[in-house]
Design a protein around this nucleic acid. Structure first.
Lengths: 115, 115
DNA sequence: AATATATATTCCCATATGGGAATATGTCAA
DNA sequence: TTGACATATTCCCATATGGGAATATATATT
């Protein structure tokens, strides 16, 4: 097997930094493709291809307005990513904090149980 | 140019679901490679290769214990990902909810505080 | 209809996989 | 030293890019 498709899920889709930039641009307001091309300095076909990937995983929504296609970020689709990362928050506190907590709470059932 | 290397950054490294599973396993405690192989049902070389990628972007830390290599997740490295996704939180609330909140709570401190 | 404008798609190509198989490396035990 | 155990690395291969160039599609304008 080879690497998973960029359109297989949100995690793969945002692996590309250009696509993350596009999502940032389209988060606060919808914009036509041409604006993205101008703002990021990419080739138009390149932007269209990235948008296609983002659309396939529902990270952006589109609507037509005359000859323009107006894209905007579907922030809701980024949530799973945020939630996944949030699961690690409890572990990224500084060591000192963790040691302190452990000392203060000795006797308490294992915080860090098996599995 | 082709697709970016999985070791180019955290975003590319976690694009692979197997690697995300490994990070979850190693978040609460360090474990030898063999345990990961058994728990995820993957081939040993495959696990070693995934661990190599995770190491290259500092998503895991290692120490040797006899012939075993004990790996554990470096949660701190997942933070950039979480932070990036957090930037979109303000946009993923439902419209109705947002409108309602705005109407009811003008002036009230944020329910959904920072972090 | 003919032309211009805005996007999308297709083709080609160098590159980076991820899995399987085989092999190398490192460490402990007898 | 020899053998067993635990990991890591290398090779091979099918697949999926992402960028550039060329082309197709859709819509507005005259």
């Amino acid at each position: 097997m080879s690497r998973a498709a960029t359109t297989s899920d949100v995690f793969n889709a945002i692996a590309e930094s250009r696509r993350r930039e596009i999502l940032e641009l389209l988060a606060s307001r919808e914009r036509p493709v041409g604006d993205i091309v101008a703002m990021l300095g990419l080739e138009q076909p390149s932007v269209s291809k990235h948008l296609r990937v983002l659309r396939d995983v529902d990270l952006v929504l589109v609507r037509r307005d005359g000859r323009q296609m107006l894209y905007r970020t579907n922030a809701e689709a980024i949530r799973p990513l945020h939630d996944w990362a949030s699961g690690f928050r409890q572990y990224w506190r500084h060591h000192l904090t963790r040691i302190k907590e452990r000392a203060e709470a000795s006797g308490r059932p294992r915080i860090d149980g098996p599995e």
